[in-house]
Amino acid sequence: MTLPVELQNEAPSKLSIQAVSKRFASRKRDKPVQALDNVSLEVAEGEFVCLLGPSGCGKSTLLNIIAGLENADTGGVKCDGADVTAPGRDRMMMFQESALFPWLDVLDNVLFSLRLKPGLNASERRDVAVFYLKLVGLEKFHHAYVHELSGGMKQRVALARALAPNPRVLLMDEPFAALDALTREQLYGDLQQIWKERKKTIVFVTHNVREAVCLGDRVILLSPHPGRIQEEFRIELPRPRNINSIDLARHATIITSALKGFGRGGPPMPMGDGI
């Protein structure tokens, strides 16, 4: 089978987050919540960046702003130099809950995003959907319904659905948080493989330190109230990474202590294998 044009890799995008601030009016107290305060971040083409931080530090908010689902109060996001003002197919999002549509079967869920993409006929759409379902290892489940899938399978379908329109950027908001450790480990492997094959720019939100170290080229540590970038760590471990490796655990320990001791700040700390 020749790979249709549609399935060839799009060049991954460069993201530029420039001095983004966002505050939410809080209903109970008069004081509004400063979810993000002057957050700036550059993400290179094809880079895998993990946003790490405690609950409520604005990770989801930042991701939603990159997706175009929410607007920043000040500052903004550029994707390949163009301002992000609305959601776009070049930036697909994966949520913590799979957000799959229960009234559609697995194949139709993946086709949902493709039907909205112009320039494809029905059989091409089908080929593309089948290709991605195979990529995530669900070729035998085309006609299963969402409630018939395990948590891990649901997230695989969600991943296929997000990959199907061939976005340049993949935004993932704690996609594996609700899964058991074993399933998660499998998905770490698969995601790294897919990232390598499909060459996406990925922004991955998590509050699991090991997960961040296992997946990210860089781990960005956010501090809460107000949400700010506290520190960043470059992870230079060879891939594919195993979450149980000792090197990885060492990195995770350093980041965990940084996570615990907010307020010490500092320049980005390069961390090679030597540490």
């Binding site: 175009g68 689902l69 959601p87 776009g88 999002m93 949520f95 957000a99 909205l116 659905r161």
Partner: peptide
């Protein structure tokens, strides 16, 4: 979340 997911996939308004 359904409507949000749909929006990221390019669905708007009546669709």
């Amino acid at each position: 979340i359904y409507a949000r997911a749909a929006r990221t996939m390019g669905s708007t308004g009546l669709h």
